[in-house]
Write a protein that binds this DNA or RNA. Structure first.
Lengths: 349, 349
DNA sequence: GTGAAAGCGCTAACAA
DNA sequence: TTGTTAGCGCTTTCAC
């Protein structure tokens, strides 16, 4: 174990009192420059580090940010949150915070964990992911006045006001749809999830809006299913076999897109003779675009929408530090952030 | 913010003194049963939770386990550590520990972070991943007498003794090779990494050993390359085009296996007329087996070796708690753990 | 079996 | 500008 260096050791070394050391470190303005230098030198020489536990007892601040780590659900999209987590850890460290992990099976269990954590480790804030309609967690945290940010918008119209950072899914699918329109496609289908999920509805909306603006009626061009590769494949089949002449598919996830790719490449559908965007007889594969730019997308050459996760994480930390360290002006609350995903074009579209 | 309940509140409510509460909680044996019940009831009613910071100041124990979170390197294999991390968080919580995250770009930076963390948050232990030859980190932690476990064996022969948990890569590739032998393959190739990496050498060894035992000379059947899909594809091509009649490939990672799959399915190589395992004229695709059972493997139907990551994490926590909470007998150190991966058979083999 | 006192390392308030 | 005092909430002596 490393020998413990306390503020008293530094004070002795620098020939000042303990409080002066504390001041030199925490309120540099209040100490004479020369004294401050002497203290800093002593800190350096002794390898002193403030003890968080002691500081926390005095200040009530732990400099800990807590976040839930989820089991990768379908495995493919799991990596999204992991990349976000990595960005969060880095950004937090840069602002002098550390990330504390916890798990919870559902909202209720997570609220219980909030209580646990708040009583024991006293994290200064929480970062919530996977927000959804009627989210118990945000209501509870708001009620308890615990600082937090969500990565994901509050989706309910009646949902309470809180800080959030999100990626504009609709803008993403709109960009994807535009990309396909530019390539000459007209009958562009959409594979998504059943209505009711904020994220899914948002992504569908971007596609529908763009198609409509281009003069194409989206009616009948959309299918909803659960987020599984096999389901995506089935839904894609169904859509491609319809008589709407679908030549391209925008998908709400890489899982669905991978299924769509399987369907599109299956014999009899892979190549659509005479159905190419030009309307000519050229054979063209059905174009597919996914969402999240997961490793799977990269591996199979799937064009996909990439979320700026490191950026999103950095914004979460920025909002939190403004709230915690800065003096957030009452009339001027920190602004929520909506980031745009970017289209990563590969062979599939 | 939740109202703060201290031990004094509980004491008042239960009509006892403060450290009787502490005793009831920490040394249940020393308090009369009836008193203990009264205290526990008060704890329940008040929703009391011991404050870690205060306890930590007194005991010097933080009940924090620190672990590095890495940027997903090639993206495909990144999910392995994430799944391990999830298991660790769950197991740790069950033992009353929380997981603290940090990042570091290399060994040296990580050692710096050790110092930082130890001075500030005082984690009780570290879990190290991605151990390698000449690991600076283990040497430093050992020198400082900081408790830690590695997920991964100490690979250097001269490497210092410490607790570790690992998955037996050689056993995995051996099982994969046996599976292929049972299916009738003889000329089974291996795609791995350049010699020198403990993990890679271990995985190659399992393949070579099994092949030799079956009477097949592994000479010339192995290729080494960096862990990229494209490199795997090239190496697989090279191996399949040789005149050794290779009909199956065992790979050190899913990335390489994915590349191998591309190569194996390419026109002219995908179907090996007359080279089937039976030696007959039947056409058979080249069999491919990967390592890590990543989401990509599942998505593309790649047979792969699955590491018992949750189990490995649980063992790490178990070793640590024995070291930290239990009285590890000097003559009887906790045993290191070597787990076996399991073969997940899919279409590719 | 239970209570009183001390102190872990730090910083907010006040005094010099 | 610097030093002194007090106390955050807990547990570890040591009396009772």
């Amino acid at each position: 174990m490393a020998e413990k260096v306390t503020i008293a050791d530094v004070a002795r070394r620098a020939g000042v009192s303990r409080q002066t050391v504390s001041n030199a470190l925490n309120s540099p303005g209040v100490v004479r420059e020369e004294t401050r230098q002497r203290v800093l030198r002593a800190v350096e020489e002794l390898g002193y580090r403030v003890n968080q536990a002691a500081r926390q007892m005095r200040t009530g601040r732990s400099r800990l940010i807590a976040i839930r780590i989820e089991p990768d659900r379908d495995g493919i999209n799991g990596s999204v949150l992991d990349r976000f987590l990595h960005g969060l850890t880095e950004s937090a460290a840069r602002s002098g915070y550390r990330v504390l992990l916890y798990t919870a099976d559902d909202d209720r269990a997570e609220v219980d964990t909030f209580e646990d954590l708040l009583g024991a480790y006293e994290p200064d804030a929480f970062v919530l992911t996977s927000t959804h309609h009627g989210d118990l967690r945000t209501a509870w945290l708001l009620d308890q006045k615990v600082p937090f940010v969500t990565f994901g918008r509050p989706w309910s119209s009646d949902s309470p006001k809180h800080l959030w950072v999100d990626v504009d899914g609709a803008a993403g699918t709109a960009a994807a749809t535009r990309h396909l329109l530019d390539a000459g496609h007209r009958a562009i289908g959409f594979l998504g999830w059943p209505p009711g999920s904020g994220v899914g509805d948002d992504r569908r909306e971007g596609w529908a809006r763009t198609l409509t603006a281009a003069g194409v009626d989206p009616t009948g061009l959309s299918r909803a299913t659960s987020d599984e590769v096999a389901d995506g494949e089935k839904a894609a089949y169904d859509l491609l076999r319809s008589d709407l002449g679908v030549t391209a598919l925008v998908c709400a996830s890489d899982s669905l897109a991978l299924g769509a790719l399987h369907a599109a490449r299956s014999p009899g559908l892979a190549w659509q003779p005479g159905r190419g965007p030009g309307g000519g007889a050229a054979e063209r594969p059905v174009a597919v675009i996914g969402f999240d730019d997961t490793p799977v997308a990269k591996a199979v050459g799937l064009t996909s929408l990439s979320q700026p996760l490191a950026q999103a994480a950095a914004h979460c930390v920025a909002l939190l530090t403004t709230l915690l360290d800065g003096q957030a002006k009452p009339g001027e609350p920190p602004a929520n952030v909506l980031l745009e995903p970017s289209l990563v074009v590969r062979q599939s579209a």
